[in-house]
Design a protein around this nucleic acid. Sequence first.
DNA 1: CTTAGCACTCAAAGAATGAGAGTGCTAAAT
DNA 2: ATTTAGCACTCTCATTCTTTGAGTGCTAAG
Lengths: 350, 350
Amino acid sequence: MRMNERKLKILAAVVDFYVRTGEPVGSKVIASLPNINVSAATVRNDMAMLEKLGYLEQPHTSAGRIPTIKGYQLYIEELMTPPSLSQEERARLDDMLFCYGGITEELLIQNATTALAELTQCAVVSDFSPKFSVISKVEVIPTGRRIYVILLITSGGSIKNKACRLEFDLTHEQLNWFSGYLSEHLEGISVSDLSDELMENLTSAMSAYMMSLAPLVQGIFELSRDLKQRALLFKGERNLFSYEDLDKMEIVKFIERKDELALAGFLDDSFSGIRVLFGEDKNSFVIGNSSMIVSNYRKGKKNVGSLGVIGPMRLNYAKVIPYIEYFSQKITDLISEQTEDCNLHEEDEN
Amino acid sequence: MRMNERKLKILAAVVDFYVRTGEPVGSKVIASLPNINVSAATVRNDMAMLEKLGYLEQPHTSAGRIPTIKGYQLYIEELMTPPSLSQEERARLDDMLFCYGGITEELLIQNATTALAELTQCAVVSDFSPKFSVISKVEVIPTGRRIYVILLITSGGSIKNKACRLEFDLTHEQLNWFSGYLSEHLEGISVSDLSDELMENLTSAMSAYMMSLAPLVQGIFELSRDLKQRALLFKGERNLFSYEDLDKMEIVKFIERKDELALAGFLDDSFSGIRVLFGEDKNSFVIGNSSMIVSNYRKGKKNVGSLGVIGPMRLNYAKVIPYIEYFSQKITDLISEQTEDCNLHEEDEN
DNA sequence: CTTAGCACTCAAAGAATGAGAGTGCTAAAT
DNA sequence: ATTTAGCACTCTCATTCTTTGAGTGCTAAG
């Protein structure tokens, strides 16, 4: 009734086979594998034990076995052997990361998200909350009569804008004053420090100067709200539809509510390395039979964002995990390398 | 064997009933309607004729009848009686159109798209190609070391930006020259006039001035490309999943390829008024059993964009069409009202 | 501890059955 | 010339029963 080498080998074989075929695995197929040198009956006994121990289960009495969540966990932590990425493969991944000019932090993450969706054929979510960025530029640009565009740029490369219409045109001095005031009070401020309190001090000062700036003031306020809120980027949701073992309706439901993912705590950034979460039926929000592989990337020593791959539980973890690890590491390297004023250095691949 | 009043009434009743219930309609239900004063047998005879004429069909011998595409067409063109919108309803639609400050042309269209998706519970596509807009502002903004953001604003309110990294920092004079040169040569130009030729003249002039501006020049080039290309906005695609008679896989496929919609000529803007297209099985690209209601909006006398509602063929046309008509008309009114420098006037509802 | 053999279980696929909705046709009524 | 009642007929849908086959657990021998 205890684990041994052979039982582990059988468990690994079941997971491998099931991941590949999607069919419950019987004792015969396992016995016929080259690295298993015992009869089907023996395999049967071992599988019965593995079931008792909670690593396997049977959909019904006369079917083969499939891995349980516990089985997947053991497989991922101990049994699988992820191939290390070849030189060519790394080069290919780098290409995907830097395409469309991966200049800013934000673009980098976007590219990684897209690339992962493409590579894994799963849905990928990334969170590039600029909460650790600094506002590097505020501009107010008149464009057309009585229309003013407010522009906010962060060190991370997010560019937000908003058009506002005033009741009248500003004079040069007014515009300069307003623009200068904003620059002075916002540039250099960390996004995480953009409290409502700060904004209210700002706006009341400006309102005092000129009552009718209200729409601009309102605009600034909304932009700062925008910036602070945790922004999630999703790619490849549609890939999920190609998996037979995910319920289509559940996928649709998930897509509708995907923005709650962060709030629900799935993108916890308090850990390092890779974490795999399994979608159990209990959890009504997550897709049943799905799993999510989460990794964090860092700036210096601080975790600043997450990358998550959502796919069927029956996923080729050995193939997918190295990709996620590679991208997380690469992003970490690149954004940690930043100089004080937060540009990226040349992309010097080693 | 020819049409008469009663047959038309029966056809209309069949469409109404089928749209409401989704079930094939039998002679009995029709006969029991208050405005039909003949027996089921008579209805049966008429329905057989309507089938011979191609307006109805039977899924199988012992089922009721459902409308054919030809049946829907006749219904839409001649038989249905769309209710006119009440005063309150118009006010509600206006609210939806102007929420989040419907200040720019672009925002207006976005709001209309969102509102239509909400109201019709269908997928909605709008095309706000700014090809008839004018570039109203070009700016180059230094932000962080060696990073420059190019900003392009059109009279329609589109704001495009792109970050570029140079090999070195520009001096004040260089920046001013570059910025001035761009303003001088691009502001006031119609987007449709942004030919590759024009851009090449521009870029070669700039390259002549300073070789290493290349990334910026490239950025400008890409932005202009971006601007010229027909941009489609989709909302409410997920609504489609709630219709039993649309195939889920086909919906997914459609969502994947939705950007080809314009190219495929579904958003033809060469007509005025409303057009209804039906998704037949022949057309592999479109969702089977779907239909699309297209309307154009104008600026002055020129059609400048389209609004399309995509839903099941079994759609309450009488309810949906007035909404589309109202929004198209309203947008037309608002953007045609623009002053020369292309702001919108106050939204004076009448 | 391993294996061959065998009875047993159960899902999936097919075949048979019955109910019900709706039709087309005929002949009578208006 | 229409309209209607009546009736036999058709075909789907749901249900039930049967068969098939893969896979198991257990037992007893190696």
